[in-house]
Design a protein around this nucleic acid. Sequence first.
DNA 1: CTTCAACTATTAAAATCTTCATGGTCTCAG
DNA 2: CTGAGACCATGAAGATTTTAATAGTTGAAG
Lengths: 225, 225
Amino acid sequence: MKILIVEDDKDLREIISASLEKERYVVSLAPDYRTGIQKIEDYDYDCILLDIMLPDGNGLDLLQELHDLGKKTSVIILSAKDSLEDKVQGLDLGADDYLPKPFHLAELHARIKSLLRRNQREGERKLQFGNIEVFPDHFKVMVEGKEVDLNRKEYDILYYFMSRPGRLVNKNTLAESVWGDHIDQVDNFDFIYAQIKNLRKRLKDAGATPELKSVYGFGYKFVVE
Amino acid sequence: MKILIVEDDKDLREIISASLEKERYVVSLAPDYRTGIQKIEDYDYDCILLDIMLPDGNGLDLLQELHDLGKKTSVIILSAKDSLEDKVQGLDLGADDYLPKPFHLAELHARIKSLLRRNQREGERKLQFGNIEVFPDHFKVMVEGKEVDLNRKEYDILYYFMSRPGRLVNKNTLAESVWGDHIDQVDNFDFIYAQIKNLRKRLKDAGATPELKSVYGFGYKFVVE
DNA sequence: CTTCAACTATTAAAATCTTCATGGTCTCAG
DNA sequence: CTGAGACCATGAAGATTTTAATAGTTGAAG
């Protein structure tokens, strides 16, 4: 497990570095923005600890750069400025966690561990309900071992219900979750009806056991009889 | 400004309450999940301070409930368990901030203030570049005071560039930001070319001064000559 | 200055998604 | 039990978005 520490405070850098090496991580160090960028371009890290305020630039730009390079490395932001703005912006730009200084090393270790564990599992996730399996990392749906072809919206809806089997789902919530923020308070749900209809047909044709039950005046519920 | 505190620890509840009242907030209290839900259903709050571990339920469920009720109230999670899982899940479920216990009252106040300020401004936001104005709260675009009609994807792309005027935008980044996570590493950008072409025509027809320049081998840049 | 390959633009066709019109279903009041 | 009104389902038309086919550009190598 390789970790890059981008941090200008020499003492802090060394302390973190030493503590991580003791845990058998492979650690790289960058004292400033420029060095950080360069290392990121040249190597692949499993995790980056990123200070926001660097002598020659802003850590958030580095985050953007990372994103533009298409790298999916996990990032934990370390910042003295515990401002909500920074935090929100950081998480927005794809940081995975935010740790305000000062922090305990134990805390940092815990977060790194949790993050890496989470990444590990990526690529082998699977949702299952009745005889339906959904593999979110490949946007693939299988019923009884046979692949089922769905359109994007159908997939999104199915995925949403697979994540909440048996649970009552309000139409407004569904709309917001699947269609996004453009939907505010809509006055008609025709677009939902249409997609639900298509999805039901797909599932029935594929022989799926779970069914999308309507709940009058409220929404839907995904259940297996 | 009305604030609801859902927290089972009586002492903490009273301390927070007192400190907020001193700042002239109107404060409501709920010692448990059940009471919390009920108050949320009955009243509209500007902000909710939510403990995760309650005697009769999990605060995260309350968050979900809030969402299902279609309420957009800002929520700050207060939790003793400073686990990344809880935090991520909480922010996922729409919490606006997360404050691990113990915390300073000053910190809490700062976050509340920042949150309320953010909400306040909602509804009057505007992006401007060249002679184009975008009103994100109404999905409305104006050029020289005249409204321009765009399709959703066209709007999304324009919005993206309006937020980053003059900045070089990589096609992969654009794809991921506008089309979402379904796009991973695509091998052809035909869908972008098609939409860019349409958006350019719309802007030109409307007489907009900024232009979408292609940058060979990389992406686009939104500039005014 | 050519030439070539990679990249971008353009148009039309295909696929997908939303809207519309219509008819069936559910709930509640009487 | 019945009727009225709200709610949901359905098929088809309409709009939007993506894909495919083709043509035009750009930048690098010779």
